[in-house]
């Protein structure tokens, strides 16, 4: 079974047959012929003080142009995401970019001018890692994304060392609780504490970086964690247990589109009768929200506030005014 071994003696000192060995990944090796061909001066003229040459990123997520991009070290995040990636689709707002794969950190908008190299990413709590670059827009909940990556790492960890295996298990439970509205005071501090030990004491780089998504989202989006824990509110309206769908009676046109598409039969109404979501039946799939015609936009997603009471039966009958765009009593 493939498992990391603790290696305090580096491969470059003693590796295969106890001889100094060169162990590198494909991307590094691919640079070698070019350096031999064009010389080290040429190579070192590209990049930053601490990181020479170019870097290939896999630009994905909420960005117009996705794919592999090769840029000189030191190119800013903004250049990569906006100039090359073409910005965020559908006019949405940028929220964060995660670099380095699942165990990278999430970097917020204020650092978009950061030149990307090893040192700068480390300063921001992230890594170059596998060269992954996931762009997230305003519809991303940072607590949920952190939970998502931790979930992934729970399976991807080999499970050999205690901080990584048991630490991820502990973190996963806490994050699952927070996104389900069961977060409690002290959770954020405990996540920081355990993340700190995972980074410091895990056996291999996976464990040492596994806490990055947690620690970086707490660092830059602490208010989102607090909203989940204290107000039971998901500001990005993502966490199912913390959001509700509700039909605005002022805007409902009783078109029955949501009613027909609801997989849980949670919507009550008929032609000319304003629709109402039965909250006890709603599975929060968001289908009603998606199918409600934009000209009505009657279905609302709310979080951290009570669902308004359904309108009285006698007021549900729709009197249609042909010129009106929205619904009307």
């Amino acid at each position: 079974m493939g498992e990391p071994r603790p290696k305090y003696i580096h491969t470059s000192e003693s590796g295969v047959w106890d001889k100094p060995s060169d162990l590198n990944n494909v991307e590094t090796w691919a640079n070698v012929p070019l350096i031999i061909d064009k010389g080290s001066d040429w190579f070192t003229s590209i990049g930053t003080e601490g990181s020479k040459g170019t870097k290939i990123f896999s630009l994905v997520g909420k960005v117009n142009n996705t794919g592999l991009v090769e840029v000189p070290m030191g190119t800013t995040l903004k250049e990569i995401i906006y100039d090359i990636g073409g910005g965020i689709p559908e006019g949405k707002k940028f929220k964060a970019v995660q670099t380095g794969g699942p165990s990278g950190g999430c970097i917020p908008e204020e650092y978009l001018d950061t030149p990307v190299d090893f040192d700068e990413l480390a300063k921001l709590g992230s890594i170059m890692g596998s060269g992954g670059m996931i762009v997230m827009d305003e519809d991303t909940c940072m607590v949920d994304i952190s939970r998502y990556f931790v979930d992934f790492l729970c399976d991807e960890s080999c499970g050999k060392c205690v901080p990584c295996r048991e630490g991820l298990k502990g973190v996963r439970k806490i994050l699952n609780d927070i996104v389900a509205g069961r977060g409690k005071e002290g959770d954020i501090e405990l996540l920081e504490e355990i993340g700190d030990v995972m980074s410091e004491a895990s056996l291999c780089a996976l464990g040492k970086t596994a806490a990055n998504p947690i620690l970086s989202t707490i660092r830059y989006f602490r208010d989102e964690y607090e909203a989940h824990i204290e107000e039971k509110r998901c500001p990005a309206l993502v966490c199912k247990d913390l959001i509700s769908y509700y039909i605005d009676p002022e805007r409902c046109n009783a078109c029955r589109l949501c009613l027909k598409n609801c997989p849980a039969d949670a919507i009550d109404g008929e032609k000319k009768l304003i629709h109402i979501i039965d909250q006890s039946k709603c599975v929060k799939c968001g289908t009603c929200f998606d199918v409600c015609p934009p000209k009505f936009s009657a279905v609302k997603k709310i979080s951290g506030e009570p669902v308004p009471p359904p309108i009285p039966e006698e007021k549900r009958v729709l009197v249609k005014d042909k010129k009106s765009k929205g619904g009307q009593k």
Binding site: V162, P163, G167, G170, I194, D196, V197, A201
Partner: peptide, 13 residues
């Protein structure tokens, strides 16, 4: 600090 966290994690397990 590291040892305490490891022990606390194993105490849960």
């Amino acid at each position: 600090k590291v040892r305490k966290m490891i022990i606390e994690l194993l105490m849960a397990r």
